[in-house]
């Protein structure tokens, strides 16, 4: 079964609405309505394996009543379809202090090979 989609290209402000179609082996069968090559490549990526950087928070065991959360990010983008599962996994994590900026909070989340790291720090 071929899959078709309209992908809004985010590579430049033109924001082409690229019509793209792939076959069952994820080969691009057709692409149209784009103004440059980047649009075609981007659209193919978006239909074959869209990825997103996930930024969220985890709970931190701290005395600080006002800041019970630590902001975190995946170091690289992970498959879009895994975002909700990644959120659920991170919801179960409680981090001990001190946490330094860049500390790995969850290594290799959902076997993506991508680590989740702190984007702030909580010292105590």
């Amino acid at each position: 079964m071929n899959r078709k989609a309209e992908v809004i290209c985010l590579q430049c402000p033109l924001a082409c609405r690229v019509e793209v179609e792939v076959d069952k082996d994820n080969k691009v069968v057709s692409a149209s309505n784009y103004k440059c090559k980047r649009g075609k490549t981007y659209a193919a990526q978006e239909i074959i394996n869209p990825v997103r950087v996930l930024t969220t928070t985890v709970r931190v065991l701290t005395r600080d009543q006002i800041h019970p959360l630590l902001p975190v990010t995946t170091r690289e983008a992970i498959p879009k379809g895994l975002l909700q599962d990644a959120m659920k996994q991170l919801a179960g994590i409680e981090v001990k202090t001190p946490v330094k900026y860049g500390d790995v909070i969850c290594p290799n989340i959902l076997n993506t090979g991508v680590d989740v790291v702190a984007t702030s720090e909580v010292l105590n």
């Binding site: 928070t57 709970r59 959360l69 909700q84 959120m87 659920k88 919801a91 179960g92």
Partner: peptide
């Protein structure tokens, strides 16, 4: 509380 809704939804997928 933040994270509470995710724990509630555990097991079931959206």
């Amino acid at each position: 509380r933040t994270k509470e809704l995710l724990k509630e939804a555990k097991g079931g997928s959206k």
